[in-house]
Nucleic acid binder design. Structure first.
Lengths: 224, 224
DNA sequence: TCATTGGCTGAACGCACGTTTAGGGTACTG
DNA sequence: CAGTACCCTAAACGTGCGTTCAGCCAATGA
């Protein structure tokens, strides 16, 4: 079920080849900017066949979402067993089929919608689990706002993917962008996650004071 | 020139009102998903007038880009004088006209293109200048990779805007999303920027070792 | 053998889009 | 008063879209 996702196109049913092409094109150009005709041409079939199999363009998107969901679940599960985020970040983007998935997820997040909400939520959940493990092993101190810390990490990693095209040098081959961007930021990010940026608590104190002075909510946030 | 950007719609020429509506709609839904007819309806004029003034839909986009460029330059210049990133982050998103600008910039970055490259580059430049000042004042230690550190900060701040809809609680009013997301992350981010995440150098050392073992480039990166 | 099923196509439909064209209305200018 | 310049519109054009429909063709099963 897992290794079956890596194979030459010849092995696939036409239905599956259509879906693969759709995932690729949706991920690259977005759902709205990808026409049914473009996908059909890519696969070498008629536009009508596509609707015969999936009912409508939205049906095809649904099939892509489902496919990616399963894929993502498998991979995260497989990876959580024995890898660290650093190695995961390095490994991903190396293999072209990961590129396709990451591009699709990227598009999903950018375009929004229910599926995107679910994907984001699951990323946060996974990060919280990872952070809890780090705290348990004594590699990170506990915090009042575990969710906030997880959100910050998700912004860092997802943001790196979202902005990959700007982080990789101009002219980087399309399929290398995600990997190159990850490598570019890995060291300065780890540096910041290890030693922080500021050498004093000036900023932090200033913001805490700002929060204390303006009690804008039924806030229990500025506490500790 | 600056305060002239805040005024009721009545004061504006029709040409300007069209541009304002276009900035708003392009920012919300994206260029491709916003039709000339939709903008015309919003302003209350005929679609033809729009093309009379701007030549084409692309001409209108260009006018929006130019408008936002000037606006952004003014604001950054005004802000750099005496504000800290924390207060800037807090202030922005408060006023609705900033919301419009941020949404437009967000779309620009997501959709890519030459204008996006320029915007991103100028964000990095500004962040580097800010970091240099912090180092000069002794609030932050120097680093081998100033650009990398700046990129990391840009990913953090821009990422927060890109992902704002997921960071704010579901159901947050459209115009509050950016501000609420900023407030949600401000404290955990400052915490991380001040104290870091990891309490040991395990991760950092592991990645440095990985870099040393795989000399993939004419690298002078794993140094220090 | 014939009927049935399912993958697949070519042609067409209705629609929304960006754009063009011809011209109406109003206010300056000689 | 005629002429001109400008803001603006109604109507239409061509294009590409998602989708529908009638039917071809090969394989299957009775």
């Amino acid at each position: 079920m897992c290794s079956a996702r890596v194979r030459s196109d010849d092995d696939l049913t036409t239905r599956a080849r259509i879906r693969e092409a759709a995932v690729d094109l949706f991920g690259r150009a977005g759902f709205a900017a990808t026409s049914v005709r473009a996908i059909a041409t890519e696969v070498g079939v008629s536009p009508a066949l596509l609707l015969h199999h999936f009912g409508s363009k939205d049906g095809l998107r649904q099939a892509c979402d489902d496919h990616i969901t399963g894929w993502l679940t498998d991979e995260i599960e497989r990876v959580n067993v024995d890898d660290t985020p650093a190695t995961v970040m390095s490994l991903m983007g190396r293999r072209p089929e990961y590129n396709t998935m990451i591009r699709y997820v990227r598009r999903t997040i950018v375009d929004g919608g229910k599926f995107a909400d679910r994907v984001f939520a699951s990323l946060v959940t996974d990060t919280r689990r990872y952070l809890a493990a780090e705290v348990a092993h004594g590699h990170a101190p506990p915090t009042d706002d575990e969710e906030g810390r997880a959100l910050t990490l998700v912004v860092l990693s997802l943001g790196t993917h979202l902005l990959a095209q700007y982080l990789a040098p101009p002219g980087t081959a399309d399929d290398d962008v995600i990997f190159v961007a990850g490598e570019r930021l890995a060291l300065p990010m780890l540096e910041m996650l290890t030693h922080g940026l500021y050498s004093d608590t000036l900023m932090l104190d200033a913001y805490r004071e700002y929060l204390a002075r303006i009690p804008h909510l039924t806030s229990e946030k500025g506490s500790r």
